[in-house]
Simulated scan of single mutants.
Amino acid sequence: MPRTAERKDHPLSMRLPEADIAIIDRAAALRGRSRTDFVREAAVRAAEEVMMETLPVRMSQEGFDAFIQALSGPATAVPAMVEVLRRPAPWEQGGGDVGN
């Protein structure tokens, strides 16, 4: 009798309001994805973010020393950042009818 391969996928079922399904379907269509692929990707990304927020960062002693050295060294201006910070914010530029 041949052995069947063990299935690696695990089903996940949710009950969602029709409005939630509609917005998920619209977003999935905009990305050219199926509802399942879109929801799976979004759920995995959210889970990874939580993990990154809560798990400690581990590195070698050499890596930590290099990190501390980079933080302890003198600040170096990044010309593109300096230019952006010198520009007035859109709401400070005047003109336009927004908010008037």
Rank of each mutant, 00 (worst) to 15 (best):
S13A: 10
P90W: 14
L12F: 05
V50R: 15
A5Q: 10
L85I: 09
L12H: 03
R45D: 08
K8F: 12
A66Q: 03
V57Y: 01
Q69T: 06
M14G: 01
H10D: 08
L30V: 06
E41A: 06
T76S: 08
V84P: 00
I24M: 13
M81Y: 05
A27C: 10
F67K: 00
E41L: 07
S34G: 15
I23V: 09
S34R: 08
I24Y: 11
G63P: 00
R86E: 15
G95S: 12
G95Y: 04
A80S: 12
R15T: 01
P88L: 12
A42P: 00
G95E: 07
H10I: 09
S72H: 03
A46C: 02
R58W: 14
A47P: 05
E6A: 08
A5S: 08
D65N: 02
R15S: 04
R86T: 05
E83D: 14
L71S: 11
T36K: 10
D20W: 04
E41Q: 10
P90Y: 13
D65V: 04
M52E: 11
A5L: 08
A29F: 09
V78C: 04
A66D: 03
L12T: 00
M14Q: 03
R45S: 06
E48H: 08
V84H: 14
S34N: 12
P79F: 01
I21Y: 09
D20Y: 05
G32A: 05
A70F: 10
W91C: 07
R31E: 02
L16A: 04
D97Y: 06
T76R: 06
Q69D: 10
L16I: 08
D37C: 01
R26K: 11
P79G: 02
I23C: 10
W91M: 08
V50H: 15
E53S: 07
G63M: 05
G96S: 15
G94L: 05
F64A: 01
E41F: 01
G32W: 06
A19E: 11
E49M: 12
R45G: 00
V50F: 11
P79V: 05
I68L: 08
A75N: 08
P90Q: 09
S72P: 00
D37A: 12
R7I: 10
V39Y: 01
M52I: 09
R7D: 14
E41V: 00
I23L: 12
S72E: 08
E41W: 06
A43V: 08
D97A: 06
T54D: 15
P17M: 07
P90L: 11
G32V: 04
R7F: 11
Q93T: 13
F38I: 01
P88D: 10
V82W: 04
L12C: 05
F64W: 00
T54H: 15
L12W: 01
M59T: 02
G32K: 04
D37N: 06
L30Y: 14
